[in-house]
């Protein structure tokens, strides 16, 4: 170690920083900036969380408290009456069942279709590969509104109207482009060398896919399945057009909104919100992968 004289500047020990004025000012500046960033971050977080907190307050209050004015910021007493009232209302259990059925079917269908399609797009050069990507992206750009009306009429003509599985088909069609692109990016992130290595060491291509690629791609595929579930669970426009007596939960709630009491509405909003909160928590790390890919 070279030890040199330090002209003009008195030596400092790392343990005793010099608290001269300039340094203090600079430090205060740095801290102020950081505090500013935190203030903005927390403000935005409050903006996002406050409405959720308020609706949770409503959901856990008694129906009397929900109707009360002025309203409290905390449920007092905490009660499941409003949620029970909502869940026991006419048709809610059935609608929830329909929603889950539709969402699960959409997840299964879109995953089954998207895994081979995504793999093909990620791995193979085939004629029209770019065209396929482009077409899928353009389908993404079609408004649900535009697709739903003619589809409803077709289903009517075919006698398939008002059946939950047709809604699942619609939701599959809506999410498929996203799912294919996401899954293809997941596959693209697994190096092809892994598969080649597996084949060199005696796997058939199918085995190589099942034993090497699939395990590595599984978390990403699961994330995209969850995304499909959330989209289907939340989708209301196509649902309300394509079903009549077999409404899904959002369609049922929306259709009966003007006849509903506040406790019903607020409990409904909270019940619909909970699965989304949980699912987004699970896929939060994949969000950027998904959208990063779709940006291209």
């Amino acid at each position: 170690m070279s030890t040199e004289a330090l002209p003009n500047i008195p030596a400092v020990s790392p343990k005793e920083p010099m608290w001269d004025a300039q340094r203090r000012r600079a430090l205060i500046g740095v801290r102020l900036r950081r505090a500013g960033v935190y203030a903005v971050a927390i403000t935005i977080a409050v903006w996002v969380l406050l409405p959720i907190w308020l609706i949770a307050t409503m959901a856990f209050s008694t129906p009397q408290d929900v109707r009360a004015f002025p309203k409290a910021l905390f449920p007092n007493p905490i009660s499941l009456d409003s949620i029970n009232f909502f869940l026991n209302a006419d048709g809610i259990i059935r609608a929830t069942g329909n929603s889950i059925f539709v969402a699960l079917l959409a997840v299964v269908l879109s995953t089954l279709l998207a895994v081979p399609a995504g793999y093909a797009i990620a791995r193979y050069m085939f004629p029209g590969r770019d065209a396929v990507r482009l077409v899928m992206l353009s389908v993404r750009a079609f408004p649900i509104v535009v697709l739903a009306v003619p589809l409803a009429v077709i289903f009517l003509q075919l006698g398939l109207f008002d059946q939950p599985f047709t809604l699942a088909l619609m939701h599959t069609a809506l999410t498929l482009p996203t799912t294919v692109l996401v899954i293809s990016s997941v596959f693209a992130s697994v190096p092809f060398e892994f598969e080649e290595a597996a084949q060199v060491f005696g796997c058939t291509p199918l085995q190589a896919f099942a034993r090497v690629v699939l395990p590595l791609a599984l978390p990403g595929i699961a994330a995209s399945a969850i995304l499909t579930f959330v989209l289907s669970w939340n989708e209301v426009f196509a649902a309300i057009l394509l079903t009549l007596s077999n409404r899904t939960l959002p369609a049922h709630i929306l259709y009966n909104l003007d006849k509903s009491s506040d406790p019903f509405k607020f409990a409904a909003a909270f019940v619909m919100l909970v699965p989304s909160l949980i699912f987004i928590f699970f896929i939060r790390r994949y969000l950027f992968n998904m959208w990063g890919q779709i940006n291209k």
């Binding site: 971050a41 935005i44 977080a45 996002v48 969380l49 409405p51 959720i52 308020l54 609706i55 409503m58 959330v230 669970w233 939340n234 989708e235 209301v236 959002p250 709630i253 929306l254 506040d262 509405k265 607020f266 409904a268 909003a269 619909m272 919100l273 699965p275 989304s276 909160l277 699912f279 987004i280 928590f281 939060r284 969000l287």
Partner: peptide, 24 residues
């Protein structure tokens, strides 16, 4: 944590969002 919080509305339907702000 902030990322998760900011991403929460991503999973919330427009119906629910409407009811939330209606409540306010």
């Amino acid at each position: 944590l902030f990322l998760y919080i900011y991403a929460i509305p991503l999973g919330i339907s427009d119906l629910v969002a409407g009811i939330l702000w209606f409540a306010i």
